[in-house]
Simulated assay, not measured.
Amino acid sequence: MTEQAKYHGLPSNEEVDSMVELFKAFGDKTHYRIISMLAAHKMTVNEIASQLDVSQPAISHQLTVLRHAGLVVGERKGQFVVYQLADQHIITILQQAREHRLS
């Protein structure tokens, strides 16, 4: 029996790594703002950059991090990529975090 198997409910190393990556993505102010904006509607890099008054390359980098964390997806529309949240769970996480912090 492995040391980890002795403890019921202890997550695997892979699960821990995945959850840490998820919460790191939420833990960045710019990421949080982008996620909040995409919860309202789909947006391009330029639209996000304009709203946040941040350079397009900086937003592109942030979106790459969020894509790797599985939080956003992009769809090519002509010469633009339109970003949206990966799924409804992201909105649920946002809502629950807000309720937790504001209660």
Rank of each mutant, 00 (worst) to 15 (best):
L85S: 05
Q62M: 08
I35N: 06
Q79P: 00
G78C: 11
Q84C: 02
R101G: 06
A25H: 05
G9M: 07
V73C: 09
L63I: 05
G74E: 07
I48E: 03
T64R: 09
L66Y: 02
L102G: 01
I59G: 01
A40R: 09
I48V: 10
F80Y: 08
I59Y: 02
H31A: 11
V72W: 11
A39K: 06
Y83G: 01
L63F: 03
M19K: 12
T92P: 00
A39E: 12
H8L: 13
A49W: 10
Q79C: 01
E75R: 13
K42R: 14
L66N: 06
K29R: 10
Y83S: 03
E3N: 10
D17V: 01
I91Y: 00
Y7V: 13
A5D: 14
H61Y: 08
K29M: 04
H41V: 00
G70T: 11
V54D: 03
I34W: 00
G27D: 09
R67A: 13
L22S: 07
L94H: 03
L52C: 06
I59R: 01
V16H: 06
V16K: 15
A25K: 03
Y7W: 05
Y7H: 10
I93G: 05
R67K: 15
H100W: 12
I90N: 03
E3C: 06
Q4R: 15
S50H: 06
A5T: 03
K6V: 15
A39N: 10
Q51T: 09
Q51A: 14
E99R: 15
